[in-house]
Design a protein around this nucleic acid. Structure first.
Length: 435
RNA sequence: GCCCGGGUGGUGUAGCCCGGCUAGCAUUGGGGCCUGUCGAGCCUCAGACCUGGGUUCAAAUCCCAGCCCGGGCGCCA
């Protein structure tokens, strides 16, 4: 008999409804026993009554523990009497798939909240909580909305290598891996291969993938392994084109979340509304003046620091009533060799900040072979070591640019999470690689 | 990597300043009572001072080291 799947529940007219899930609560009142199960869509109460329910169901559920996995078939009450569940069922059959040990390492019912390290050590149990599942459902919709927007606007998804033969030169520390009989590195950004794909004649691409950073960062906004939505496009006029794409992309992701994750947003108590576009743009060197007015002195030509990011957010909130904003024209000396210069000292290099946190870096890349080589020399790098990358610019390179948005950072800030690990299923940091 | 703060039953905490008697509470777990509970209730039992060293008659409490965790900074997404 083929039933149909509806909200994770198997429907079948003759035998009634079939439900499954993890046991959330058991309340035994002697002659009546309530078993509440939870799955990723709903909570269902099984009501067992002496005299109505077959006696064997009382027997087999006698030693049942919280977090055991069961399946039940029975009649659904048209008017449920249970308050805090979605449905109530009088079971006829109960099948026990797995009995959980008692003394749980954390309580998914959250009667006693566990701390983050405990939760991450026992992540599969933590993930059973509806509010944690809500985070990842929202993240799924966010990425889906972004990908759909990219596809609808002519971008093609590509996969670039995660293992690279030479450490790229962005300054971030890389993980070394044993590659047969020599050393290789895990990418800290798909940047350079995205550019090489552009040189391959693919004009609008994105790479949704993993990046690794071997930095000893102990902060609520860093991971050793994180994912990014990395976009690259050819034949741009200037870096403004990448900014227009980036803000629409973010908006499209948020629009999708608002459309299909109302329930999850409510669980997390988040009111999400679409930001206005275009996002405000601040530029160096005016950034120095803004900061100085706010009492923060940054030397002309230097990069700003974490405190400045927050100050600039304050400024943007007051003057533009916005939370997203771009910072453009960073000093060339604090950016990598491949960015396009602007007026000698600055670069067409753009960061996107949201609520005071850097979400992405990007901008226009240098596509002129001679200029690229001279910038490598200016940075004090060995042109020979980058030849594997630069030599293809000698055979025809279009103007191009792009950006990479940190997925977990975006999700973290959209959902007001206070640690990026909350937005990661199994986060990796310098200490933690298990589970 | 640097600077702060912290590790008490399975989970979350009180106690630490000012060392001292069965280390308190909640939740969880075992047993019992209850036919509509819903953070069920009531009775009862069980379970802990991160590791190592030092000071002292006596250390969860004071000192040192290590390990682990959290926050800030740097770096970045």
């Amino acid at each position: 008999m083929g039933g149909k799947w509806q909200k994770g529940v198997h429907m079948d007219k003759e035998s009634g409804v079939k439900v499954h899930g993890w046991v959330s609560e058991i309340r035994d009142l002697g002659k009546v026993r309530f078993i509440v199960i939870r799955n990723w869509n709903e909570k269902v109460q099984l009501t067992l009554k002496r005299g109505v329910t077959p006696d064997n169901l009382f027997d087999i559920t006698e030693g049942l523990t919280q977090e055991s996995v069961i399946e039940a078939t029975g009649r659904e009450l048209k008017e449920k009497r249970a308050k805090s569940v979605d449905r109530e069922i009088l079971p006829r059959i109960i099948k026990i798939h797995s009995v959980s040990q008692s003394k749980l390492p954390l309580d998914p019912n959250w009667k006693v909240p566990a701390l983050l390290p405990t939760r991450l050590d026992n992540r599969p149990l933590d993930l059973r909580r509806p509010e944690i599942q809500a985070i990842f459902k929202i993240e799924f919709s966010l990425i889906n909305g972004m990908e759909d927007w990219l596809r609808n606007n002519g971008f093609m998804r590509v996969f670039t290598p995660a293992i690279i033969g030479a450490a790229s030169e962005s300054g971030a520390e890389v993980f070394k891996v044993q590659y047969f009989n020599r050393n290789a590195y895990l990418r800290q950004d798909p940047q350079l291969h995205r550019q090489l794909t552009i040189l391959g004649g693919f004009e609008r691409i994105y790479d949704l993938g993993v990046n690794w950073r071997a930095e000893l960062s102990h902060t609520p906004r860093h991971l050793s392994e994180f994912r990014s939505m990395a976009v690259e496009m050819a034949f741009i006029e200037n870096e403004q084109d990448t900014m227009r794409v980036e803000e629409e992309l973010i908006k499209a992701g948020m629009r999708r979340v608002i459309e299909e994750r109302k329930k999850e947003l409510r669980i997390l108590n988040i009111e999400m509304s679409l930001p206005e576009t275009p996002f405000p743009e601040l530029r160096f060197p005016q950034v120095y003046d803004i900061l100085e007015e706010m009492g923060k002195e940054i030397r002309y030509g230097d990069d700003y620091d974490t405190e400045s990011e927050k100050l600039l957010w304050e400024y943007i909130k007051q003057d533009y009533h916005a939370n997203f904003f771009f910072v453009n024209r960073f000093p060339f000396k604090v950016k990598p060799f491949y960015v396009m210069k602007e007026g000698g000292m600055w670069a067409r290099s753009v960061d996107l900040l949201y609520k005071g946190l850097e979400l992405s870096s990007g901008g226009q890349r240098e596509h002129r072979y001679d200029v690229l080589i001279s910038q490598i020399i200016e940075k004090g790098l060995d042109p020979k070591s980058l030849e594997w990358f630069t030599k293809f610019f000698a055979y025809g390179a279009p103007p191009h640019g792009g950006f990479a948005i940190g997925i977990e950072r975006l999700a973290m800030k959209l959902l007001d999470l206070n640690n990026i690990k909350e937005a990661t299923l199994f986060p990796r940091d310098p200490e933690k690689i298990l589970p």
